[in-house]
């Protein structure tokens, strides 16, 4: 049974009214993680200021439960405006505590969101190295 019980008000707000979802046109990088078998798929789009390496814009798409959607939304809120180096340091705990708690069984959702961000940053660095 789906249940919005057991989720914090903050998490539900993020889940029901996410602001940063969607695509960025011509993104500087996209990080894709997930596995349909276990349930969650997350894509993270980045727009980076090449001089400062700050995240100018960040958007996401998530196939997943309430916790998965809310976690990706929360991570984009935290990451926006940060430099890539700062963004890489964001932890699962940062996301969970900003959400005012995550049920134990849903902790993997915030881990996945972090993986999606890391992957998009990796992709950006790879592109840059290759001079694209």
């Amino acid at each position: 049974m789906p249940s919005n019980k057991g989720y914090s008000k903050k998490l539900l707000r993020n889940f029901l009214n996410p602001k940063n979802f969607g695509e960025i046109k011509n993104p500087d990088a996209v990080g894709k993680v997930g596995n349909p078998t276990c349930g969650d798929i997350m894509w993270m789009y980045l727009k980076i200021d090449p001089k400062t390496e700050k995240i100018k814009d960040i958007k996401f798409k998530t196939y997943g439960c309430a916790a998965a959607i809310a976690s990706t939304e929360q991570l984009t809120i935290i990451a926006k405006g940060k430099t890539l180096k700062e963004a890489e340091k964001i932890t699962m705990k940062d996301v969970a505590s900003a959400l005012e708690g995550l049920p134990q069984i849903k902790l993997h959702c915030s881990t996945m969101a972090i993986q999606a961000l890391k992957k998009s940053i990796e992709e950006y660095r790879k592109k840059k190295k290759n001079g694209k």
Binding site: P2, L12, D40, Y63, G64, C65, I69
Partner: peptide, 14 residues
């Protein structure tokens, strides 16, 4: 297709 069941249930519950 393309929507996770719990998410759909959660929006309906809302």
């Amino acid at each position: 297709n393309d929507i996770e069941g719990e998410a759909l249930g959660g929006y309906l519950e809302n």
